[in-house]
């Protein structure tokens, strides 16, 4: 009985950590998508230096362990630029966004490659502008193709986020550790955190499947 009461008392702490994890990952996922669109646009710009920079960026990000990126941004960059103490939470958001943008851009690139060239020609021949082509013809076709993989990338972001507890971000993982230290229970808080992570990631793939079904309605290929 005492054990159960003790466990219930720790729930608000864990939920507080969950909110921080959600906030960081939500912001990072949105920024990553914006970045990914920019990277794809750069790669398709035809301007040599933009294409080369975008390619180098993606290669670097894909080859860099995320812990190293986080340490570089939290310890390295502030020291280099003499910034003093920086916000661990924002460093976390930026690190996950920088990393996510590279991976999400590859997802978008793959989805775009699956569309036929005829779609652009058909739209241009009807007099649509480049902007209208992307808005009305290409994006609605890219989204359902890219969604499952994008959801997977967001899942990766969430699973990478505990690394931020190493730079003092009090996320779900850090809270679970704090509860462990308070209660001397090495198992319960971690298991609770497991369940929360599991449902968080599960709900993302559930939402993506729902959206995918809605977006593809009526047009079996």
């Amino acid at each position: 009985m005492k054990y159960v009461l003790g466990a219930i008392e720790t729930v608000p702490l864990l939920l507080d950590g969950l909110v921080t994890t959600l906030l960081i990952c939500g912001l990072a996922a949105i920024l990553a998508l914006v970045g990914a669109v920019a990277i794809v646009a750069a790669k398709r710009s035809g301007m040599r230096w933009l294409v080369v920079s975008a390619t180098i960026y993606v290669t670097l990000m894909r080859g860099l362990p995320i812990v190293i990126l986080v340490f570089l941004l939290y310890f390295g960059v502030p020291a280099l630029l003499d910034l003093g103490r920086v916000s661990a939470l924002w460093v976390g958001v930026i690190a996950l966004a920088l990393n996510g943008a590279a991976f999400q851009s590859e997802v978008l690139r793959g989805a775009i490659a699956r569309l036929s060239r005829g779609q652009s020609e058909g739209a241009y021949a009807l007099g649509l502008s480049r902007f209208q082509l992307w808005r009305l013809v290409l994006t609605p076709q890219i989204l359902p193709i890219a969604l499952p993989a994008l959801a997977g990338e967001i899942g990766f972001l969430i699973k990478a986020s505990p690394v931020l507890s190493l730079i003092t971000v009090v996320d779900l993982t850090r809270r679970a550790q704090q509860v462990t230290m308070q209660t001397f229970d090495p198992l319960g808080p971690l298991l609770a955190a497991c369940v929360l992570y599991f449902f968080l990631i599960g709900s993302i793939s559930w939402v993506s499947r729902y959206l995918e079904a809605r977006l593809t309605v009526g047009k079996a290929r």
């Binding site: 005829g118 058909g122 021949a125 290929r221």
Partner: peptide, 14 residues
Amino acid sequence: DVGMVFQHFNLFPH
């Protein structure tokens, strides 16, 4: 002013 019909139709599948 110019309509075009293609070999592979190029209809918008969505």
